[in-house]
Amino acid sequence: MAMSIVHRATGIANYAGSSLLVLWLAAAAWGAEPLNLVNAIYGSWLGQLVLFGYTWSLIHHMLGGLRHYVWDLIYGLEAGQREALSWANVIASVILTLLVWTIFVWVGN
């Protein structure tokens, strides 16, 4: 099914995303000026777009990973069940991502 490649793609996106996290941590450790620079880049519309995508990628990959544990217990492997899990994953990951951004970014700040 097409969804397995999404788990792979989100794994790669998370791989890249770790660099963004470490860059931010390193800038904070380094000093105020590097931190301001990173904050300006991440706070720009492009930066926010990337971080939104990174949030979704992490959440989708997490749910996809948890699905692997279900499969390892030989549940949910039948035709129909697999597709249902895939759709549930897409819908849940979009809802959770929007929830995180709504609560902490759009309303919280």
Partner: peptide, 21 residues
């Protein structure tokens, strides 16, 4: 373990995004 990491990450980033040193 990464599920726990994600919890920490969301807390830390949403608490500190754009904040100073």
């Amino acid at each position: 373990s990464n599920v726990l990491f994600l919890g920490f990450l969301i807390f830390i980033v949403t608490r500190l995004a754009g904040e100073d040193r």
